[in-house]
């Protein structure tokens, strides 16, 4: 029962996290910041706006992105196979990328290409993390992982690698070249407007849920550790976001792949020997 509720309200919870984050970020910059419910105000406003579309495929693919992401989150909450979840998540990114490429718009294309390259950077690391969980817990099933002890100690290097993946997915500095807010005007999101942009906006909230749910897996059955991890990483990410500048896509791939793969490799080899 609680699972179903969680799944149904996942975007809303994500919205709260997002709203809270905006407040936290503002406070870190010594500003007051928007109200906590700001994302929902945005949502209602977007529903009320006149809707524009560029072409039907573009819009449908955008909605597909949102739905797939929701399915991904649902599968995590239901405790399905982690590897499958990661691939399904890749599928959702692919929908977004296709949407970006399906319009004749420069920024959309640049954004999509960057999204694709970013997927290239984080996908192998996510797979390695899944394998790490498999080696520790003997199963890819999230339900099983949740029943085991916290694996953060034995997967510490992978955890560090995951910390590098998170800013990419959440579009945070220094790894936010995919969205690059003013530089390429939001990249893939640019051609969406009104209620159709709302789907993308909510997809962003779901991305928060996805990323933090994966993070909590490191805590296994220890709920307090999970919440602690969530809060700690949440603050850390926002601190880094405020304190660093955006780096180029090329550097993003190099840094994330080289560092992430090395960390992952060391961790997995270590696990195999222990």
């Amino acid at each position: 029962m609680i699972e179903i509720l969680l799944i149904l309200f996942a975007p809303i919870i994500g919205g709260f996290i997002y709203g809270f984050e905006r407040v936290v970020r503002a406070r870190m910059q010594n500003r007051q910041g928007p109200p906590l419910l700001q994302p929902f105000y945005d949502m209602f406003k977007l529903i009320d706006k006149q809707a524009f579309i560029v072409n039907p495929y573009h819009t449908i693919l955008g909605i597909m992105h949102f739905i797939t992401l929701w399915v991904v989150v649902a599968f995590i909450i239901m405790g399905q196979n982690l590897l499958y979840v990661i691939f399904l998540h890749l599928l959702s990114s692919i929908f977004l990328i296709l949407a970006g490429f399906s319009v004749k718009s420069i920024y959309s294309h640049i954004g999509s290409n960057r999204e694709l390259l970013a997927a290239l950077a984080y996908e192998p690391i996510l797979i390695m993390i899944a394998v790490g969980f498999f080696m520790v817990n003997g199963s890819f099933d999230i339900a099983v992982i949740r029943e085991h002890d916290a694996s953060i100690a034995s997967l510490f290097l992978l955890f560090l690698a995951y910390l590098m993946v998170m800013p990419i997915k959440l579009k945070k500095s220094p790894f936010d070249a995919t969205e690059a807010h003013q530089e390429i005007v939001g990249g893939v999101e640019i051609e969406f407007s009104g209620i159709f942009f709302e789907f993308l906006y909510m997809a962003k909230w779901l991305e928060y849920i996805f990323v933090y749910l994966l993070l909590m897996l490191f805590a296994g059955d220890n709920i307090f550790l999970g919440i602690g991890l969530f809060i700690g990483v949440f603050l850390l990410l926002n601190l880094i976001d405020n304190a660093t500048a955006r780096i180029k896509m090329k550097h993003l791939i190099k840094i994330v792949l080289s560092l992430g793969l090395t960390l992952g490799m060391c961790n997995l080899i270590g696990l195999a020997y222990v």
């Binding site: 006149q50 809707a51 524009f52 579309i53 560029v54 039907p56 004749k104 718009s105 420069i106 640019i190």
Partner: peptide, 16 residues
Amino acid sequence: FALILFKKADRVKEYN
């Protein structure tokens, strides 16, 4: 979704 929502949507040019 698309079928319901497309009726109200105007076609517009890409941002450039």
